[in-house]
Amino acid sequence: MKIDTHVHTHYSGYTGLAPLTRLMRESYNTPERVYALAKARGMDLVAITDHDTISGALTLAERPDVIVGCEVTAHFRDGVRVHLNVLDITEAQFAEIDRARLAIHELMPYLRAEGIFVSLNHVASRVNGHVTAAHLAWLLPWVDGMEVRNGSRLAVQNSAACALAAAAGSVPCGGSDAHTERGIGRTWVEAPAATCRASFMRELRAGRVQVGGQHGHYFTMASDILRFATNFYRERIGMLLRHPLAWRNHAVCGVAIAACPLVLVPLVLAHGHFRDEERFTESLLLDLVARPPVSGQAVPEAA
Rank of each mutant, 00 (worst) to 15 (best):
K2L: 04
H6R: 10
H6Q: 15
H10N: 05
H10Q: 09
Y11F: 15
S12L: 00
G13Q: 01
Y14N: 10
L17Q: 11
L20N: 03
T21G: 12
T21W: 07
R25L: 15
E32T: 10
E32W: 07
V34H: 03
Y35N: 00
A38D: 09
G42K: 06
A47N: 12
T49Q: 02
H51C: 06
I54L: 00
T59K: 10
R63L: 13
D65S: 02
G69Y: 13
G69I: 15
F76R: 03
F76L: 01
D78S: 07
G79W: 02
R81E: 07
V82S: 05
N85G: 14
I89Y: 01
T90C: 03
T90A: 03
T90N: 12
Q93A: 13
I97V: 08
D98P: 05
A100M: 14
A100W: 04
A103C: 09
E106N: 09
A113R: 13
E114M: 06
G115L: 08
I116G: 15
I116A: 13
F117V: 06
L120P: 05
V123K: 05
W142P: 02
G145K: 01
V148C: 05
V148E: 03
G151A: 11
A161R: 04
A167T: 08
A168M: 03
P172H: 00
A178K: 05
H179W: 00
R182F: 14
T187V: 11
E190W: 08
A193N: 10
A194I: 02
T195N: 05
R197C: 01
R197L: 00
R202W: 01
G213T: 12
G216S: 03
A229H: 11
T230W: 15
N231T: 07
F232Y: 15
Y233N: 08
Y233R: 09
R234A: 06
L245Q: 10
C253P: 02
V255G: 10
I257R: 09
P266I: 02
L267W: 08
L269M: 12
A270N: 11
H271I: 14
G272W: 01
E282W: 10
R291Q: 15
Q297H: 14
E301L: 15
E301A: 13
